[in-house]
């Protein structure tokens, strides 16, 4: 095994002895100094997760979160120097982490917080002018054949729990007590200008937005939305998207805007 391989293994597994090729110039036990490196690795990665998952942390408390994140670090260390992206597999880890089973919505809150980080750093894309969209929609003879391209920050999540309400309740101090998390809620995350915004939406809107993101034309996207929820309200959903600068391109078969 190479020196760096041995070093890496010993850093990630706390029960491994420190590599034998190391020494301290004062004769101190190398393990007592190797602990600094091991602590740097673990605490910096746990801190990165704490920053990316603040409500997940609040739901279980600092001590529990750090222990859970520490096990995640050992199982799934980063595979890229881009620490902004670290933790993509954290929600799936939480889902299977039995000690967290008493907070059944924890994994979905983590999924939701990951979408917020992604939206924050997502590519910039100039939205279409709101008036221009309305005019284009009104002047369109074959509305159903229209394709909309959405801002790169847009993402949705279907949850069996009130994931948006749980998250929102943790944005202000105090009063969380009355919240019942055990009802299904879907989420929309987007960035308008520099600000990440979140909305509770219905499953029909999720199907509609996901369809548009796949390049599906308006008519078929509405059909998919109505299959997901008979209560889907196209006007309301479009108003939400237009009002938050989420539409960046409109394509009909003849012309493209912009």
């Amino acid at each position: 095994m190479s020196h760096h391989a041995a070093f890496t293994n010993a850093l990630l597994a706390p029960d491994q002895p420190c590599p034998g090729v190391l020494f301290s110039s004062n004769g101190a036990d190398p393990a007592s100094r190797f602990a600094v490196y091991r602590n740097n690795v673990h605490s910096s990665l746990i801190s990165a997760l704490s920053t990316a998952y603040p409500v997940t942390l609040q739901l279980v408390g600092d001590e529990f979160f750090r222990a859970m994140a520490g096990l995640f670090v050992q199982t799934c260390p980063p595979t890229s120097p881009l620490i902004n992206e670290y933790g993509s597999a954290f929600a799936a880890f939480i889902q299977d982490f039995e000690p967290a089973a008493s907070v059944p919505y924890l994994a979905d809150v983590a999924r939701f917080e990951r979408l917020r980080v992604r939206a924050y750093h997502a590519a910039d894309s100039q939205p279409l002018d709101q008036q221009a969209i309305l005019q284009a929609l009104q002047g369109q003879t074959d509305l159903g054949k229209l394709s909309l391209r959405l801002h790169p920050s847009l993402a949705t999540l279907n949850s069996s729990y009130a994931v948006v309400a749980v998250w929102a309740a943790h944005q202000t101090e105090g009063a969380v007590a009355t919240l019942n998390p055990r009802h299904a809620q879907s989420a929309l995350v987007l960035r308008q200008g520099l600000a990440v915004k979140v909305f509770a939406i219905d499953r029909g809107s999720v199907a509609f937005i996901d369809s548009l993101n796949q390049g599906i034309q308006l008519e078929m996207a509405v059909e998919k939305a109505l299959q997901a929820s008979a209560e889907f309200d196209l006007h309301q959903c479009l108003t939400l998207l237009i009002g938050h600068d989420a539409i960046t391109h409109l394509h009909s078969e003849q012309k493209v805007l912009p």
């Binding site: 020196h3 760096h4 391989a5 070093f7 890496t8 850093l11 990630l12 090729v21 490196y37 740097n40 690795v41 910096s44 990665l45 990165a48 260390p77 980063p78 595979t79 890229s80 120097p81 620490i83």
Partner: peptide, 17 residues
């Protein structure tokens, strides 16, 4: 320093021989 080995990135500046 080094900070990656194989697929793993360790997020620390590690020492060299």
């Amino acid at each position: 320093a080094w900070s990656s080995h194989g697929p793993v990135f360790l997020n620390d500046l590690l020492p060299l021989a």
